[in-house]
Amino acid sequence: MENQVAAQLTLPILDPGRLQELARQVRLDIVEMLYRSGSGHLGGSLSAADLLVALFFAEMRRQADNPCWPHRDRFILSKGHGAPALYAVLSRLGYFPREELATLRRFGSMLQGHPDSSCTPGVEIPTGSLGQGLSIANGLALAARLNRLNSRIFVLLGDGESQEGQIWEAAMSAAHYGLDNIMAIVDRNRLQIDGRTSEVMSLEPLAPKWQAFGWHTLEVDGHDIPQILEALKSCRGVTGKPSVIIAHTVKGKGVSVFEDKAKYHGVAPNDEEYQQALKELGAA
């Protein structure tokens, strides 16, 4: 059975150089999509680009031509406003034609402002209202266990999002039920809408919180692909408890004007910023 599954898997890309190149392209996609749509969430999409590329291209088990493959690993974008990053990755994996990216947020588009599973292949469930994705991931993890599936459930959380109480309800549940098929990643870019997380509502000490809730907890540089891959790999062997990686990132990563500035949370680049971004991201 497992052999059969392995035979159908899309082969992962493990070469860090290639993954870095993919992340650069995904960042370009994000800038391009937002520039065209005139709105969307820039900073938190750019901060998550390396994490999503590492997850989708190197770690998650999936079949490129079969998004509903029952044995697939699942991904929930709990910080749903990071949709542009997810759409860019899904399009590069062939879940839908790349031309669709140009329709982001338009009337009739398959790419809604926040993820909607009813119209976008590869999206598992609607998200966008923060704080809810980890509970959904837990339910999927319980179902996988009952169904005797080896699939793992990945969920990307925002750090600001972690101010929601439901995240901690779900953190308790995952540990209580020993959900070692859950792999959470926190995009720790230290910014939310109104400013720094430390000023709006402090989260620290964050890693000890997750540890205290019974989670296997790691910290990485969320833009260092080899580090991310290593951390993901080391979590595969953890049994009896869920794992979380706190990924230290820079909001707006990749384009100097956008980096580490709360003001680029939810805006599209203007003409000048767009040109600068293309230059810095090395558009051909």
């Binding site: 699942r74 598992e124 469930i125 704080g131 809810q132 994705g133 980890l134 509970s135 959904i136 991931a137 837990n138 339910g139 999927l140 993890a141 319980l142 179902a143 996988a144 009952l146 169904n147 109480g165 439901q166 309800e169 779900a170 308790m172 549940s173």
Partner: peptide, 15 residues
């Protein structure tokens, strides 16, 4: 809140 979210995930997983 976690109750409803977890139920949702279980439904997504075919339960």
């Amino acid at each position: 809140q976690d109750l409803m979210g977890t139920a949702a995930g279980l439904a997504l997983g075919g339960k």
